[in-house]
C-alpha cells in the first residue's frame, strides 16, 4: 500500500496492523480498530476477538452475506 500525504482510515488501520505481533490474540474495539482485520498479514497467525465476544473474526462480509447473529463491536458484520 502506498502512503498518501494525508492519512485516511485505511492507511491508519494498515499501519496499526503492522504493529501486531505473531501468534497473538488481539481484541478489536469499536471504530477504527475493527478495520485492522482487513490488512493483517495472514502469515502472522493472529486471532481477532471483537469486544462483544466473538473470537476468530476477519474482514467484513459482503452485503448479501451479512448475518445479524454475528456482529463486531462496531455494529458491522
Amino acid at each position: 500500500m502506498k502512503f498518501p500525504k494525508k492519512l485516511n482510515k485505511d492507511n491508519i488501520a494498515y499501519r496499526a496492523s503492522m504493529e501486531l505481533e505473531e501468534n497473538s490474540y488481539v481484541n478489536l474495539g469499536i471504530g477504527l480498530p475493527s478495520l485492522c482485520a482487513k490488512y493483517i498479514d495472514k502469515k502472522k497467525n493472529i486471532r481477532f476477538q471483537a469486544e462483544n465476544g466473538v473470537l476468530g473474526f476477519d474482514e467484513l462480509s459482503q452485503s448479501n452475506l451479512q448475518n445479524p447473529d454475528y456482529m463486531d463491536a462496531g455494529g458491522q458484520f
Binding site: 452485503s63 451479512q66 448475518n67 445479524p68 456482529m71 462496531g74 455494529g75 458484520f77
Partner: peptide, 13 residues
C-alpha cells in the same frame, strides 16, 4: 443509536 446510524443492522434492514 441504530435508528440514526444503522448500527448493528444488516444493510437489507
Amino acid at each position: 443509536i441504530s435508528m440514526i446510524t444503522g448500527y448493528g443492522w444488516i444493510d437489507e434492514d
